[in-house]
């Protein structure tokens, strides 16, 4: 499934002529784990009250999100090639109310965790046992609003909130640690009162274990997933050039061939 999702990412962004493949590829195992194992959801009933909620705070990796939604059955896979086209439900960044499965409009970085907090509070108010998952980028941790949300989540003891941080170490301008250093990230989140779980973000088993472990923990959980930007395509790996640009025709061929050859 991960290979399939990656293929979609390469194809969709190539068709669109733009988009963010690098971060999409680093998030692939995380998204596959959530949508095909961890989350309680029903693509045939996207407004089901008891569904787990998912917020894509790093909204620019919409391609991997749409690929996961389509493969889950929220909408036809063929629609993926309409990404970023006029009139498409697949907006460049996720737009609420257009596409089933999208729970909130995102794209302006640093805002998703706050929304996830609100959803986690709503679950408690309604006495429902759904969980809220939020996928964050590492670069967006430079935004102060995340830390406001971090305070709120521990203050209100949001046991049902799980954030996953795609720690691929690259942002638009280059390395996060050179652009605006984030480390020690794990210590920071612990200091904010969160459970911190560190995993290899390309090892599905580790991601599943962490999600399961967080279920029994008190307070909000932050899963820091160590990843490689552009994972799966050699010339895209650790290359921040592919943060916000798609493959050329040749690159697309090479990428698809490489993905085909991988096990």
């Amino acid at each position: 499934m991960c290979r399939n999702i990656r293929r979609h990412v390469i194809e969709m962004t190539y068709e669109a002529g733009s988009g963010h493949p690098g971060g999409s590829l680093s998030s692939t195992e995380i998204m596959v784990s959530l949508f095909f194992q961890v989350m309680r959801h029903d693509p045939q009933n996207p407004k089901w009250d008891l569904r787990d909620r998912f917020i894509l705070s790093k909204g620019h990796v919409a391609p991997v999100y749409y690929a996961a939604l389509a493969e889950s059955g929220y909408f036809p896979v063929e629609e993926l090639k309409t990404l970023r086209k006029l009139g498409s439900r697949l907006q460049g960044h996720p737009a609420y109310g257009k596409l089933p499965g999208v729970e909130m409009s995102t794209g302006s970085l640093g805002q998703g965790l706050s929304v996830a907090c609100g959803m986690a509070l709503a679950a408690r108010l309604d006495g429902l046992d759904y969980r809220v998952f939020c996928l964050c980028g590492d670069g967006e941790m430079q935004s102060g609003q995340n830390w406001e949300a971090g305070m709120l989540a521990s203050h209100y003891k949001l046991d049902n909130l799980v954030a996953i941080l795609d720690r691929n170490r690259l942002q638009s301008s280059g390395l996060t640690e050179e652009t605006m250093s984030l480390e020690p990230l794990a210590d920071k989140w612990r200091a904010f009162g969160w459970n911190v779980l560190e995993v290899d973000g390309h090892d599905v088993r580790q991601i599943l274990n962490a999600c399961e472990l967080s279920r029994s923990m008190k307070g909000p959980s932050m899963i820091i997933a160590d990843t490689v930007k552009g994972k799966g395509v050699s010339f895209m790996e650790n290359n921040c050039g592919f943060h916000g640009r798609c493959c050329t025709c040749d690159e697309r061929e090479k990428a698809l061939t490489e993905l085909e050859a991988r096990q």
Binding site: S114, V115, G118, M119, L121, D126, Q145, E148, L152
Partner: peptide, 24 residues
């Protein structure tokens, strides 16, 4: 049904949006 968010208005708006998305 009242949530004090502290001096964090941006987070207040996001949290409000999340609550509204769940029917509040």
């Amino acid at each position: 049904r009242f949530f004090e968010v502290g001096i964090a208005e941006q987070n207040m708006i996001g949290t409000a949006a999340g609550l509204a998305a769940c029917g509040k």
